[in-house]
């Protein structure tokens, strides 16, 4: 099997123009930038949820050559705000879920029978990460995955995500605001300035 390299080729969406980017298997690339600079739109374009120019490649296969839902099944975007449509949590987990993963995020098995309406914002956020990861994609696109979490839970989620990304070898784009988080998880850090992605040296930390 070809290594799951994620390659953005002259990707153009919104303000961003002709972005070229390679993300190696297991690499976490953090994206930052002012709000409204187009971080989320970039992720949406990579997941093919938004019309865009250029092409995205996954393990040598072009985005435009496979059906869109199969692309998104592999290139999994987790939005900042999670959405739930059925009454109970478990109904959203079509592929089942491991007890170990539940425990790692601070849940027990019985959470699956909970009413969605009972969940706090933070619980929803953690469960939406679990929901995406349990579908075993090949790439993760994370939009501020820890925005609503307290410090202790945030560390827990960061560690769980980082180890999962490493063990599965998922190329990952991770939108983050917090400099501390970027230092902790990122292999590379890119910043959106106007129409370009600028490489941020680790030195400033």
């Amino acid at each position: 099997m070809q290594p799951t390299l994620l390659r953005l080729e002259r990707l153009t969406v919104g303000e961003l123009e002709a972005v070229d980017l390679n993300v190696s298997p297991g690499d976490i690339v953090c994206l930052s930038g002012a709000s409204g600079s187009g971080k989320s739109r970039l992720l949406r374009a990579v997941a093919d949820l938004e019309p865009h120019g250029g092409e995205v490649w996954l393990a040598g296969q072009a985005q435009s050559t496979i059906p869109a839902h199969r692309w998104r099944r592999q290139v999994m975007l987790v939005p900042a705000e999670s959405q739930w449509w059925s009454d109970r949590v478990g109904e959203h987990f079509s592929d089942g879920v491991e007890d170990g993963d539940l425990a790692a995020l601070g849940f027990e098995r019985e959470v699956m029978s909970w009413q969605v309406g009972r969940l706090s914002t933070g619980e929803k956020q953690r469960l939406s990460l679990l929901r995406a990861v349990s579908r075993e994609p090949r790439v993760l696109l994370l939009d501020e995955p820890t925005a609503n979490l307290d410090d202790a839970t945030r560390d827990r989620v960061e560690n769980w995500l980082a180890s999962r990304i490493e063990s599965r070898g998922w190329p990952t784009l991770w939108v983050a605001h917090d400099k501390g988080q970027i230092v902790r998880v990122a292999n590379r850090h890119l910043r959106i300035e106007g129409s370009r992605l600028l490489v941020q040296e680790a030195a400033w930390t």
């Binding site: 997941a47 949820l49 839902h69 199969r70 998104r72 099944r73 592999q74 999994m76 975007l77 987790v78 939005p79 705000e81 999670s82 959405q83 739930w84 449509w85 929901r131 995406a132 579908r135 994609p137």
Partner: peptide
């Protein structure tokens, strides 16, 4: 319900 529809698309639903 646009957010819900898009969320389901993100999870790979047709």
């Amino acid at each position: 319900q646009r957010a819900v529809i898009e969320s389901r698309l993100m999870l790979g639903q047709s």
